[in-house]
């Protein structure tokens, strides 16, 4: 059974149909890509999945549980996490604090809210900071990091949260091309070593073809095509959508 299953999902904003009966499936343990020209409804679909807005029609199931009626924090606590296109971190806190507060909150009891973090959390934060290459900056305020470093930190925070599945909104946008390979590598390792299923929005074709095992392509709010990277790469409809032929 798939980890995430979107069925016939529709969402419109004041007459503009941003998602029109979209269905997709993300099997456990895989890396799935989501591509499409600007304005094709990728981010809307992400927002629907993580609960930012209610969907107009359709169902979204995570681990077999219907989640389209749940609020954002509830969905996050189920283990379905997202990162933002405009990177978001806690700017006035240090990197370590950013990591610590990202521990899973699913089983947090009232009394636990007033305790300090145990030593394991500290060690894990350090380990993940090392994994994303920010260990030496751990005492700096996150807001003082460069954009690329913030992106890495946000990814690290997501790992800290031990999600079952991670939705990444353009993980390489605005990143120095030499760093992109590092990011691809870390995403693959997160998938392989931590067992996190990934759903990735990406504009950079080289990245997504390299990363994903299966790709969905959206255009004008509709699902245009889906298949293995090679199939998508040679699909005439996908090429037309990207090059603007109608």
């Amino acid at each position: 059974m798939s980890l995430l299953q979107v069925k016939d999902c529709s969402k419109s904003f004041g007459g503009v149909l941003a998602n029109d009966h979209i269905s997709l499936e993300v099997p456990e343990g895989q890396i799935i890509g989501l591509i499409g020209p600007n304005g094709s409804g990728k981010t809307t679909l992400f927002n629907s999945v993580v609960g930012y807005h209610p969907v107009d029609a359709g169902t979204i199931e995570f681990k077999g549980q219907e989640i389209s009626h749940l609020q954002v924090p509830q969905i996050a606590r189920l283990g379905l996490l997202r990162t933002f296109q405009q990177t978001r971190i806690y700017g006035k806190m240090t990197c370590v604090q950013n990591m610590q507060i990202s521990v899973p909150h699913a089983s947090e009891r009232l009394a636990e809210m007033f305790t300090s973090f145990p030593a394991e959390v500290q060690e894990k934060a350090d380990a993940i900071l090392e994994f994303v290459g920010l260990y030496s900056k751990r005492r700096l305020l996150a807001g003082d990091l460069s954009f690329g470093q913030q992106k890495l930190l946000e990814f690290g925070m997501a790992l800290m949260n031990q999600p079952r599945m991670l939705l990444l909104d353009e993980p390489t946008a605005g990143i120095n091309p030499t760093l992109i390979n590092g990011i691809i590598d870390r995403l693959k390792r997160a998938n392989a070593e931590f067992g996190i299923t990934l759903l990735v929005i990406e504009h950079n074709m080289r990245v997504i073809m390299n990363l994903a095992e299966h790709i969905y392509c959206l255009a004008h709010g509709k699902l245009l095509a889906d298949g293995a990277p090679d199939v998508i790469r040679n699909d005439q409809r996908v090429i037309d959508a990207y090059l603007g032929a109608h």
């Binding site: 993580v50 609020q71 954002v72 924090p73 996050a76 606590r77 996490l81 997202r82 933002f84 978001r88 971190i89 806690y90 700017g91 006035k92 806190m93 604090q97 610590q100 507060i101 990202s102 899973p104 909150h105 699913a106 947090e108 009232l110 636990e112 809210m113 007033f114 305790t115 300090s116 973090f117 925070m157 949260n161």
Partner: peptide, 27 residues
């Protein structure tokens, strides 16, 4: 110095992010 302190700091810096990370913001 407890978890509470970091949580309310996180809410200050970016409440949407805190919600997206699953924090019990209302609590």
């Amino acid at each position: 110095t407890s978890r509470f302190g970091l949580a309310i700091n996180a809410i200050r810096d970016d409440e949407d992010k805190a919600e997206a990370m699953g924090l019990h913001t209302t609590r």
